[in-house]
Design a protein around this nucleic acid. Structure first.
Length: 393
DNA sequence: AAGATCCACAACCGCCTGCGT
DNA sequence: AACGCAGGCGGTTGTGGATCT
């Protein structure tokens, strides 16, 4: 095995992609689809290997990517899914439309895992101290992130259970879990016995869990998850068509006021999107375990309002005139768009032209002091971009 | 002001799997 | 059945900006 054959080729560029490379790749895939990835770099005129092109497209250039910071709901969903799926980032990503596995993986490794670890350290063995609640792993110091997540659920469960009133039965408690009303069986990763003890069975394979979830999940309860979560993961088919006559319809699906991105939303016929609601996650409307309890991370409060802006309609995004001058950039109303947009190589399709914007600092705005001064940064980046593409602002 | 350190993100690497021959 | 290729995935590293000292 070892290195992919295409990587043996000489004179292949590595490292960060330049805007010119992005444009070449984007233009090529927009026109022709990717086809065989190994042939894309040659056909697109790039000195890259096919895998590199594929990654760049999937993680950055794909037009159906949701840009910007993760919302609290998304973080919660990631934690929930990670508790079930583990490090299957692609499957987790399939449940978060517009997010990539790489993005989620980075978020987990840099942020969520830290939070869970801090929480575990600051509140050791809450679960194991409860005689009614048992876990296969009572030592937080040895917990893997997945185990930490499980501990997290157990802890929340224990808290809820302790504070509940007399008539609470195990079956009642199931409502506290994100996958509500599931018929958990003793063989599953999560089990509840009549004595109200609950445990994660570490010897239970994930496939069993998945199979159990799949079989007992009622479509009326969680139609989105049941239809897609444990079946074939959503895959984006990058054969994108960007209809120039109706930019507002490009791949946008609005369901319950939020983005409802489907991989299948983009098709060569350009006929906007399929409904796709069967496999979408309605984050805003699904009160999860976390919201129905007292879950709150330290900055969750601070970020909640700001991150609501993450649910910007793609259609609005596409139709917003990014490159109409610095005055527009500085316009306060345009700020959320920029602050939520993962930048560098975003494009707008207007007719046959492709416009680009660049902004390396998108992620700073929600947790750095510079957040109060985005305009200068936008302007600077736009100027850089304009220079790169020979445009004037 | 400058170097050191931290952090988030992009990209690469190696392995696995599926498919065609 | 064996082999090679391409695509996909997860772990890891590299990079550059922000922050700290």
């Amino acid at each position: 095995m070892g290195r992919h054959s295409c990587c043996y080729k000489q004179k292949l560029r590595k490292g960060l992609w330049s805007p010119e490379e992005d444009e070449k790749l984007l233009n090529y895939i927009t026109k022709h689809g990717h086809g065989c990835w190994s042939s894309v770099p040659k056909l697109a005129g790039l000195q890259r290997c096919g895998k590199s092109c594929r990654l760049r497209w999937i993680n950055y250039l794909r037009p159906d990517l949701k840009r910007g910071a993760f919302s609290q709901q998304e973080e919660n969903l990631i934690i929930e899914l990670h508790g079930v799926l583990g490090n299957r980032w692609s499957q987790i990503a399939a449940q978060l439309p517009g997010r990539t596995d790489n993005e989620i993986k980075n978020l987990w490794n840099s942020c969520i895992k830290k939070k869970l670890s801090q929480r575990a350290n600051s509140k050791p063995s809450t679960v194991s101290s409860n005689s009614k609640i048992t876990s296969n792993n009572d030592h937080n110091s040895n917990l893997t992130p997945t185990a930490l997540t499980q501990e997290f659920f157990l802890d929340r469960f224990a808290t809820s259970y302790e504070s509940s009133t007399t008539s609470c039965r195990p079956s009642d408690l199931m409502g506290y879990f994100p996958f509500q009303k599931l018929s958990y069986k003793p063989t599953m990763g999560l089990s509840v016995n009549p004595n109200t003890s609950i445990c994660f069975n570490s010897n239970c394979s994930s496939s069993e869990i998945i199979s159990e979830f799949d079989s007992c999940m009622t479509p009326t309860i969680l139609p989105s998850l049941s239809s897609s979560m444990f079946q074939t993961p959503i895959r984006v088919t990058p054969s994108v068509s960007l209809p120039s006559d109706n930019p507002n319809s490009v791949g946008s699906c609005e369901v319950s006021g939020i983005q409802n991105w489907e991989a299948s939303s983009f098709s060569n016929n350009g006929s906007s999107c399929s409904n796709g609601s069967s496999s979408s996650i309605e984050l805003q409307n699904n009160s999860t375990f976390f919201e129905t309890n007292t879950f709150s991370w330290e900055e969750a409060h601070l970020r909640s309002v700001e991150n609501d802006q993450a649910f910007i309609k793609w259609s609005e995004y596409l139709s917003t005139p990014f490159l109409i001058g610095t005055t527009a950039v500085q316009n306060q109303t345009s700020r959320p768009m920029y602050s939520e947009v993962k930048p560098e190589t975003h494009f707008i399709t207007e007719g046959s032209s492709t416009s680009w914007q660049q902004n390396h600092h998108h992620h700073q705005y929600h947790h750095h002091p510079q957040a109060s001064q985005p305009s200068n940064i936008y302007a600077k980046d736009l100027q850089r971009l304009a220079v790169a593409f020979g445009q004037t602002l």
